[in-house]
């Protein structure tokens, strides 16, 4: 069973890497907004996974994206931080200690809680990504515009695709 789970997660990782590199990595709205859609996989890691497992999957996801670009370590560093914060954000968002499995989504958390959960993690992810990447001549205006526009497009993609696939996206308590 664990082998099947591992294999499924591995295929998901490959899928998100290919989507990021060949689809979302080529989108650049208004010259600033760059969607980092692969963060979806980190957001949706289940609550029963150990923190170390979440960290390792996040690290290798980021590293795999880096392999297709000329910035080794950039996505790996960002994804590792997001992976470290994901269980913390999940505990805060759900507010109770859970012993059963929770896979964060609009359906399982309710859209308001999922929105807060995903907003906070995506914002930190994008902010750290652009701090590490840097901007030409340290231009603050370009930095702020890049962070806000990339956050907006990534969050919109993650949230609305999740909402579309949720059958019961109500605000029920968890």
């Amino acid at each position: 069973m664990k082998v099947i789970l591992f294999f499924r997660r591995f295929v998901t990782l490959l899928l998100f890497v290919l989507l990021q590199v060949f689809v979302f990595g080529r989108i650049n709205l208004f010259g600033y907004a760059a969607p980092l859609f692969y963060v979806w996989m980190i957001l949706h890691m289940e609550s029963h996974m150990s923190r170390s497992a979440v960290l390792l999957w996040s690290f290798f996801l980021g590293l795999a994206v880096d392999v297709f670009t000329a910035t080794p370590g950039l996505n790996a560093a960002t994804a590792t931080l997001t992976g470290f914060l994901q269980p913390v954000a999940m505990n805060i968002s759900t507010r109770i200690d859970r012993h059963d499995t929770l896979r964060p989504s609009c359906e399982s958390m309710g859209w308001r809680r999922f929105m807060l959960f995903s907003m906070s993690l995506i914002f930190i992810h994008i902010l750290v990504y652009f701090i590490l990447r840097g901007t030409p001549e340290q231009n603050t205006g370009i930095f702020v515009t890049s962070v806000l526009s990339s956050f907006a497009i990534t969050f919109t993609l993650v949230f609305f695709i999740d909402l579309a696939f949720s059958e019961k996206a109500d605000n029920r308590p968890v």
């Binding site: 960290l55 390792l56 690290f59 980021g62 880096d66 910035t71 080794p72 370590g73 560093a77 470290f84």
Partner: peptide, 17 residues
């Protein structure tokens, strides 16, 4: 583990790029 992985990533970013 977080410190180690983050360290490896930053090492790649700042020394190998």
């Amino acid at each position: 583990l977080f410190i180690v992985l983050e360290g490896v990533s930053l090492l790649l970013l700042f020394t190998l790029s």
